[in-house]
């Protein structure tokens, strides 16, 4: 029998602050199901309940009502966490450890054998592009490097499920692209990924499915294309089309019931420009 990777059933989370009458409802009746091997993006503005959802999945906080299972196992059991790797939002880790030491520490926490650990650390440092910085203390790391060591730390025990809280926040576009590529390669290996983000463009390229959270409710959920596609519109992008051809097309359209909304040159996004510029100078 195969289990869903994550199964969240009717989870409600109410935060009660002592000495204050009003309680904050962070999540209302959340249902979520993520299949093994899927990359799922949880979107929403700050304070929408993304982090709360992730923390509940990881057992860091307990839901007021409802239940969560990870690969069929109740998530409050410590053993359920053997399958999970987690990258917290803005993680700092111990600043006084080097990158390699940080990974070694987490390897011990996961019960990795000594013989396997060293090889695994080198492998992961290479995967996140920190081989040269492995012996530097984390206090000297940049935000992007911290995020990458955090990712390596989450992967140390080769988990079946990877949970990433704002993986690309504060990382420059190149770093962000690397992280997306890493996620894509993990997906190819069959790892399930759940990530949260408030920057919509960053997730659209890697996610199979996305859910949109707002004020603790799941407002929309589905495949990206079907969520974003406008049913009654079509986009044509042509290369080397002569002005005559375009004029002809326009005339043809005018003779039917269809309507041309816009005719323009597609623009590169600032991000694409950035990548193009930096890649050319690197070589």
């Amino acid at each position: 029998m195969t289990h869903t990777a994550i199964h969240i059933s009717r989870v409600t989370k109410v935060y009660r602050t002592p000495f204050r009458r009003q309680a904050t409802v962070a999540l209302r009746d959340l249902n979520l199901e993520i299949a093994p091997g899927e990359v799922y993006g949880l979107l929403g503005p700050n304070g929408s309940g993304k982090s709360t959802t992730l923390k509940i999945i990881l057992g860091l906080i307990s839901p007021t009502r409802g239940s969560v299972t990870i690969f069929g196992r109740d998530n409050s059991v410590v053993a359920a966490r053997r399958e999970i790797g987690f990258l917290p939002e803005n993680a700092y880790f111990h600043k006084f450890l080097t990158g390699a030491e940080t990974l070694r520490f987490h390897a011990k926490l996961c019960g990795l054998s000594k013989s396997k650990t060293t090889a695994r650390i080198n492998e992961l440092l290479a995967a996140v592009g920190l081989t040269d910085a492995g012996d530097a203390r984390l206090s000297t790391y940049s935000k992007g490097m911290l995020q990458r060591i955090g990712l390596a730390q989450a992967l140390i025990h080769d988990p079946k499920l990877l949970v990433l809280d704002e993986p690309t926040a504060g990382v420059d576009p190149a770093g962000s692209r690397d992280i997306q590529e890493l996620i894509a390669s993990l997906k190819n290996r069959g790892t399930t990924v759940l990530l949260s983000s408030h920057l919509l463009t960053q997730v659209q390229e890697v996610c199979d499915r996305v859910g949109i959270l707002h004020r603790g409710r799941l407002m929309r959920e589905g495949q990206l294309q079907s969520l974003l596609g406008i049913e009654n519109q079509t986009e044509l992008i042509l290369e080397n089309a002569s002005p005559d051809l375009l004029d002809g097309l326009e005339q043809q359209i005018a003779s039917t019931s269809a309507r041309l909304i816009v005719r323009r040159k597609p623009q590169a996004s600032l991000e694409q420009l950035f990548l193009k510029v930096t890649e050319s100078t690197e070589e």
Binding site: L58, A79, P88, F93, H94, H106, L109, C110, H157
Partner: peptide, 14 residues
């Protein structure tokens, strides 16, 4: 504060 506790307790650490 440093969120170390998250990465530690998200591991199989009681």
């Amino acid at each position: 504060e440093d969120r170390v506790v998250y990465s530690v307790l998200a591991k199989p650490v009681p």
